[in-house]
Computed example of a mutant assay.
Amino acid sequence: MIYLIRHTTPLIAKGICYGQLNIDVTDSFEAEAIEIRKVLPAGIEHVYSSPLIRCHKLAGFLFPGQSIQREPALMELACGEWEGVHWDAIPPEVIEPWMKDFVNVAIPGGESYIQMHSRVTQCFTRIAEGPHPVAIVTHGGVIRSILSHITNTPLVDSFGAFKISYGCVMQLQVTPAGLVHETLHHVTTEKEQHKPSNFKKQ
Protein backbone atom coordinates (compact mmCIF):
# COMPACT_ATOMS: atom_id res chain seq x y z
CA MET A 1 0.00 0.00 0.00
CA ILE A 2 1.00 3.57 -0.67
CA TYR A 3 -0.52 6.40 1.37
CA LEU A 4 -0.60 9.94 -0.05
CA ILE A 5 -1.13 12.50 2.71
CA ARG A 6 -1.67 16.22 2.19
CA HIS A 7 -0.44 18.70 4.80
CA THR A 8 -2.86 20.31 7.26
CA THR A 9 -4.20 23.89 7.00
CA PRO A 10 -1.36 26.33 6.24
CA LEU A 11 -0.86 29.53 8.20
CA ILE A 12 -1.52 31.99 5.40
CA ALA A 13 -4.40 34.20 4.32
CA LYS A 14 -6.79 32.80 1.74
CA GLY A 15 -6.01 33.94 -1.79
CA ILE A 16 -2.24 34.26 -1.32
CA CYS A 17 -0.18 32.28 -3.82
CA TYR A 18 2.13 30.22 -1.62
CA GLY A 19 3.51 27.38 -3.79
CA GLN A 20 6.93 26.62 -2.32
CA LEU A 21 6.87 29.27 0.44
CA ASN A 22 8.05 27.57 3.62
CA ILE A 23 5.04 28.56 5.72
CA ASP A 24 3.97 26.96 8.99
CA VAL A 25 0.57 25.46 9.84
CA THR A 26 -2.34 26.82 11.90
CA ASP A 27 -3.11 26.14 15.56
CA SER A 28 -5.54 23.42 14.48
CA PHE A 29 -2.55 21.29 13.38
CA GLU A 30 -2.67 18.73 16.17
CA ALA A 31 -6.44 18.21 15.97
CA GLU A 32 -6.19 17.78 12.19
CA ALA A 33 -3.20 15.46 12.48
CA ILE A 34 -4.94 13.22 15.02
CA GLU A 35 -7.82 12.71 12.59
CA ILE A 36 -5.34 11.78 9.86
CA ARG A 37 -3.58 9.31 12.14
CA LYS A 38 -6.86 7.49 12.83
CA VAL A 39 -7.13 6.24 9.23
CA LEU A 40 -3.51 5.12 8.85
CA PRO A 41 -2.56 1.53 9.63
CA ALA A 42 0.23 0.55 12.00
CA GLY A 43 3.47 -0.69 10.54
CA ILE A 44 4.31 2.03 8.00
CA GLU A 45 8.09 2.13 8.25
CA HIS A 46 8.99 3.97 5.05
CA VAL A 47 8.10 7.66 5.01
CA TYR A 48 8.87 10.32 2.42
CA SER A 49 8.05 14.01 2.76
CA SER A 50 8.30 17.31 0.99
CA PRO A 51 11.03 19.28 2.82
CA LEU A 52 8.66 22.22 3.40
CA ILE A 53 7.72 22.57 7.07
CA ARG A 54 3.97 22.12 6.56
CA CYS A 55 4.70 18.60 5.33
CA HIS A 56 7.66 17.34 7.34
CA LYS A 57 6.07 18.65 10.56
CA LEU A 58 3.07 16.43 9.86
CA ALA A 59 5.29 13.49 8.90
CA GLY A 60 7.13 13.81 12.22
CA PHE A 61 3.85 13.87 14.15
CA LEU A 62 2.36 10.88 12.35
CA PHE A 63 5.51 8.76 12.40
CA PRO A 64 7.46 9.71 15.55
CA GLY A 65 10.89 8.23 15.93
CA GLN A 66 11.05 7.08 12.32
CA SER A 67 13.52 8.16 9.68
CA ILE A 68 11.80 10.53 7.25
CA GLN A 69 13.31 10.95 3.81
CA ARG A 70 12.89 14.55 2.62
CA GLU A 71 12.46 14.71 -1.16
CA PRO A 72 12.70 18.12 -2.90
CA ALA A 73 10.88 16.59 -5.90
CA LEU A 74 7.78 16.29 -3.70
CA MET A 75 7.48 20.07 -3.23
CA GLU A 76 4.47 21.99 -4.52
CA LEU A 77 4.49 23.87 -7.83
CA ALA A 78 7.22 26.52 -7.91
CA CYS A 79 5.30 29.79 -8.28
CA GLY A 80 8.35 31.98 -8.85
CA GLU A 81 7.59 35.71 -8.88
CA TRP A 82 4.04 35.11 -7.65
CA GLU A 83 5.03 33.51 -4.33
CA GLY A 84 3.46 35.51 -1.48
CA VAL A 85 1.33 37.64 -3.83
CA HIS A 86 -2.48 37.64 -3.74
CA TRP A 87 -3.86 36.00 -6.88
CA ASP A 88 -6.10 39.02 -7.51
CA ALA A 89 -3.08 41.37 -7.39
CA ILE A 90 -1.28 39.72 -10.31
CA PRO A 91 -1.84 41.92 -13.41
CA PRO A 92 -4.19 40.30 -15.97
CA GLU A 93 -1.71 40.65 -18.82
CA VAL A 94 0.85 38.73 -16.71
CA ILE A 95 -1.38 35.92 -15.49
CA GLU A 96 -3.61 35.35 -18.54
CA PRO A 97 -1.09 33.34 -20.62
CA TRP A 98 -0.62 30.97 -17.69
CA MET A 99 -4.33 30.72 -16.91
CA LYS A 100 -5.06 29.82 -20.53
CA ASP A 101 -2.52 26.97 -20.52
CA PHE A 102 -1.20 26.36 -16.99
CA VAL A 103 -0.16 22.85 -17.97
CA ASN A 104 2.50 24.02 -20.43
CA VAL A 105 3.17 27.68 -19.61
CA ALA A 106 5.63 28.29 -16.77
CA ILE A 107 4.99 30.89 -14.08
CA PRO A 108 7.59 33.70 -14.37
CA GLY A 109 10.60 32.53 -12.38
CA GLY A 110 8.77 29.28 -11.58
CA GLU A 111 7.58 26.22 -13.43
CA SER A 112 4.66 24.83 -15.41
CA TYR A 113 2.40 22.02 -14.28
CA ILE A 114 3.99 19.63 -16.80
CA GLN A 115 7.44 20.42 -15.41
CA MET A 116 6.25 19.70 -11.87
CA HIS A 117 4.51 16.55 -13.10
CA SER A 118 7.75 15.27 -14.59
CA ARG A 119 9.77 15.61 -11.38
CA VAL A 120 6.93 14.29 -9.23
CA THR A 121 6.25 11.18 -11.30
CA GLN A 122 9.94 10.29 -11.51
CA CYS A 123 10.19 10.51 -7.73
CA PHE A 124 6.91 8.66 -7.18
CA THR A 125 7.91 5.81 -9.51
CA ARG A 126 11.13 5.31 -7.56
CA ILE A 127 9.27 5.29 -4.24
CA ALA A 128 6.51 2.99 -5.56
CA GLU A 129 9.09 0.45 -6.71
CA GLY A 130 10.59 0.32 -3.21
CA PRO A 131 9.35 -1.43 -0.06
CA HIS A 132 5.73 -1.11 1.07
CA PRO A 133 3.74 0.04 2.94
CA VAL A 134 4.97 3.57 2.38
CA ALA A 135 3.65 7.03 3.21
CA ILE A 136 4.22 10.20 1.20
CA VAL A 137 3.45 13.49 2.96
CA THR A 138 3.16 16.22 0.38
CA HIS A 139 0.98 18.88 -1.30
CA GLY A 140 -2.32 19.07 -3.17
CA GLY A 141 -0.75 19.70 -6.56
CA VAL A 142 1.66 16.80 -6.10
CA ILE A 143 -1.12 14.39 -5.12
CA ARG A 144 -3.22 15.46 -8.12
CA SER A 145 -0.20 14.94 -10.33
CA ILE A 146 0.32 11.41 -8.98
CA LEU A 147 -3.37 10.52 -9.35
CA SER A 148 -3.38 11.88 -12.89
CA HIS A 149 -0.34 9.73 -13.62
CA ILE A 150 -1.83 6.45 -12.36
CA THR A 151 -5.29 7.05 -13.90
CA ASN A 152 -4.15 8.60 -17.21
CA THR A 153 -6.21 11.70 -16.43
CA PRO A 154 -5.16 14.79 -18.46
CA LEU A 155 -3.42 17.29 -16.20
CA VAL A 156 -5.77 20.05 -17.33
CA ASP A 157 -8.66 18.07 -15.81
CA SER A 158 -6.93 17.10 -12.56
CA PHE A 159 -8.37 19.84 -10.37
CA GLY A 160 -11.91 18.89 -11.28
CA ALA A 161 -11.24 15.15 -11.17
CA PHE A 162 -9.62 14.93 -7.73
CA LYS A 163 -10.83 16.63 -4.56
CA ILE A 164 -7.85 16.96 -2.23
CA SER A 165 -8.62 18.81 1.01
CA TYR A 166 -6.08 19.81 3.65
CA GLY A 167 -5.29 16.62 5.57
CA CYS A 168 -6.64 14.38 2.82
CA VAL A 169 -5.40 10.78 2.80
CA MET A 170 -5.44 8.68 -0.37
CA GLN A 171 -4.66 4.97 -0.33
CA LEU A 172 -3.10 3.43 -3.43
CA GLN A 173 -3.32 -0.34 -3.79
CA VAL A 174 -1.30 -2.41 -6.24
CA THR A 175 -3.54 -4.60 -8.42
CA PRO A 176 -2.90 -6.63 -11.61
CA ALA A 177 -4.48 -3.74 -13.54
CA GLY A 178 -2.24 -1.14 -11.89
CA LEU A 179 -2.60 1.20 -8.94
CA VAL A 180 -6.14 1.80 -7.66
CA HIS A 181 -6.86 4.79 -5.41
CA GLU A 182 -9.33 5.23 -2.56
CA THR A 183 -10.01 8.24 -0.33
CA LEU A 184 -9.56 7.36 3.35
CA HIS A 185 -9.91 10.85 4.79
CA HIS A 186 -11.36 14.03 3.31
CA VAL A 187 -12.48 17.18 5.09
CA THR A 188 -15.15 19.52 3.73
CA THR A 189 -13.73 22.97 4.37
CA GLU A 190 -13.99 26.49 2.97
CA LYS A 191 -13.08 26.48 -0.70
CA GLU A 192 -9.43 27.26 -1.33
CA GLN A 193 -8.36 29.95 -3.77
CA HIS A 194 -5.53 29.09 -6.16
CA LYS A 195 -6.41 31.41 -9.03
CA PRO A 196 -7.84 34.94 -9.51
CA SER A 197 -11.36 35.21 -8.08
CA ASN A 198 -12.73 36.60 -11.35
CA PHE A 199 -11.27 33.85 -13.54
CA LYS A 200 -13.76 32.02 -15.73
CA LYS A 201 -12.71 28.75 -17.38
CA GLN A 202 -12.52 29.20 -21.14
Score class of each variant (00 low, 15 high):
Ala73Met: 04
Glu35Val: 11
Gln122Tyr: 05
Glu30Tyr: 10
Glu35Thr: 14
Ile16His: 08
Ala31Met: 13
Ile23Gln: 05
Glu32Thr: 12
Trp82Tyr: 07
Pro72Ser: 04
Trp98Asn: 13
His117Gly: 08
Asp101Val: 10
Glu35His: 13
Trp82Ala: 01
Ala89Ile: 10
Pro51Ile: 00
Pro10Lys: 02
Leu21Pro: 00
Val94Gly: 03
Ile90Thr: 11
Thr121His: 05
Gln66Val: 09
Asp88Val: 09
Arg70Gly: 08
Ala106Ile: 05
Glu111Tyr: 05
Ile127Trp: 04
Ile16Trp: 06
Ile34Ala: 15
Pro41Leu: 01
Gly65Asp: 09
Ala89Cys: 14
Tyr18Arg: 07
Val105Cys: 13
Ile23Leu: 14
Phe63Ser: 06
Phe61Asp: 00
Glu96Thr: 15
Leu62Gly: 00
Ser112Trp: 11
Cys17Thr: 06
Pro64Trp: 06
Pro108Thr: 08
Gly80Arg: 14
Gln66Tyr: 13
Val103Cys: 12
Ile68Arg: 01
Gly60Pro: 00
Met75Trp: 10
Cys79Ser: 14
Phe63Asn: 05
Val134Gln: 10
Ala13Asp: 09
Ala73Leu: 06
Ile107Glu: 05
Asp27Pro: 12
Asn104Glu: 12
Ile107Arg: 05
Gly19Lys: 06
Pro41Gly: 00
Val94Thr: 14
Glu93Val: 13
Ser50Thr: 03
Ile12Asn: 02
Trp87Asn: 14
Glu83Val: 03
Asn22Ile: 12
Ala128Asp: 02
Gly80Leu: 15
Asp24Leu: 00
Phe124Thr: 01
Val94Ile: 09
Val120Pro: 12
Leu62Tyr: 02
Glu30Met: 12
Ala42Met: 04
Arg126His: 03
Cys79Met: 15
Phe61Lys: 00
Pro97Asp: 09
Gly110Pro: 14
Gly109Pro: 02
His56Tyr: 12
Gln69Met: 07
Ile127Phe: 03
Ile34Lys: 15
Pro97Ile: 08
Val105Asp: 11
Phe61His: 00
Arg54Cys: 05
Gly110Thr: 10
Gly110Gln: 13
Ala78Trp: 04
Pro41Ile: 04
Ile90Leu: 07
Ile36His: 09
Pro131Ser: 03
Pro72Ile: 02
Arg37Lys: 12
